[in-house]
Design a protein around this nucleic acid. Structure first.
Lengths: 121, 121
DNA sequence: CGGTATCCCTCGTGATACTG
DNA sequence: CAGTATCACGAGGGATACCG
């Protein structure tokens, strides 16, 4: 199946659409953070690190809209809201893992290439 | 190795940096297009589809800078320039493939979720 | 606690024109 | 053919303040 739609056109569109969905600044990070289980809004913000309240809200709404995560409100005081990956969202975990692994393995190499390239010009 | 640096902090940074590099609008698409072998600037622009000359140039410089692709100029008339993935760049092909496959398998499902979500509000 | 609303500014991107 | 230069626009995203 990976080899069938390799006539540039279809694969390109598929990748493009995926990037439009989770290729933004925070989606993959939030998905990665949720991989171990449900988290509250505040915990999520703290663990992702560096994300503003606004962007976390927007990202979560986006994931919810795409059916990648669920939002559960508990009628308590103080209010508690938990977010959790759906089954579909969990299918992305291996991809995020692969990306993270690639990044961890190669970022030093890339930094070296980049420094060399910058020095050469 | 995938399970070692899962203390959110490191994995998060790694994914973030990877996204800063290839998470833009065109990088993954160009990498995917180059997977079969070297291409000239014009061929690349045509096969990627929808990318402006400017963005293709920027994207290619970016990939070159990170050591993911090479630029080869042939001293001919008319001028010919070919771009090709490096060994490092080729290690990304399986990831792009996995992403494309995931997107192809799930985009209908996501569209349905999205339609339902939009209808509910 | 977990949002929403508003302001504001940077950056990515496209269009167009010009060059070697 | 394969770029570079310039402009101009709109979305992305941070900061802040307020709400249930």
């Amino acid at each position: 199946m990976a080899g069938r739609d390799c006539q540039d056109g279809n694969e390109g569109r598929a990748v493009r659409e995926l990037l439009d969905r989770i290729g933004d600044k925070w989606s993959l990070l939030v998905i990665g953070t949720l991989r171990q289980g449900p988290l509250r809004f505040g915990e999520l913000q703290q663990q992702v690190g560096g994300i503003s309240q606004r962007m976390l809200t927007l990202t979560l709404r986006h994931l919810e809209r795409d059916g990648l995560a669920t939002r559960t409100v508990f009628a308590e005081v103080p209010p508690r809201v938990e977010y959790e990956l759906t089954a579909l969202g969990r299918t992305l975990i291996p991809l995020v893992g692969a990306l993270a692994e690639w990044a961890a393995s190669n970022h030093l190499l890339i930094d070296a290439n980049r420094a060399r390239f910058d020095a050469a010009r």
